[in-house]
């Protein structure tokens, strides 16, 4: 446990964040963009837990932030997938380039 410092974990979470950003920029499909967002949210969670563990081990605040982020991510995924399926019924496609109208 002693060899693994905060920087190791921050390396993993930073790499995960920018992998998510890359996916969000390159994908044109709504479901895969949602998956990239999940990766970004998870990297933030890793950061909260790592800071709580290594820097503020007398508190539990990072842990609570992680719990609330996971809850909100679940709500966000549910609403996003409802919207995506609704969009698919109207456009027969979930490509962002095809959804070019707010109204149908």
């Amino acid at each position: 446990m002693n060899e693994i410092g905060l920087n190791h974990i921050l390396f993993v979470s930073t790499a995960l964040f920018f992998i998510g950003v890359y996916g969000f920029l390159t994908r044109r499909n709504l479901i895969t963009m949602l998956m990239s967002i999940e990766l970004i949210l998870n990297s933030v969670n890793i950061n909260f837990i790592a800071f709580n563990k290594y820097l503020f081990s007398d508190k539990l605040d990072g842990l609570f932030f992680t719990v609330f982020i996971i809850t909100i991510a679940a709500a966000e995924a549910a609403v996003a997938i409802a919207i995506i399926i609704n969009l698919y019924r109207n456009y027969k496609s979930i490509d962002v380039e095809d959804a070019d109208q707010m109204k149908h």
Binding site: I31, N45, A73, A77, A78, I85
Partner: peptide, 26 residues
């Protein structure tokens, strides 16, 4: 505790939801 929440919510919930929506739309 967070590891258990991660598995229950993400692996058991969100990914299953994503896979369902893939089957519905693709």
């Amino acid at each position: 505790f967070i590891a258990a929440v991660q598995i229950v919510v993400y692996v058991g919930g969100i990914v299953v939801l994503i896979i369902f929506s893939i089957f519905l739309t693709h």
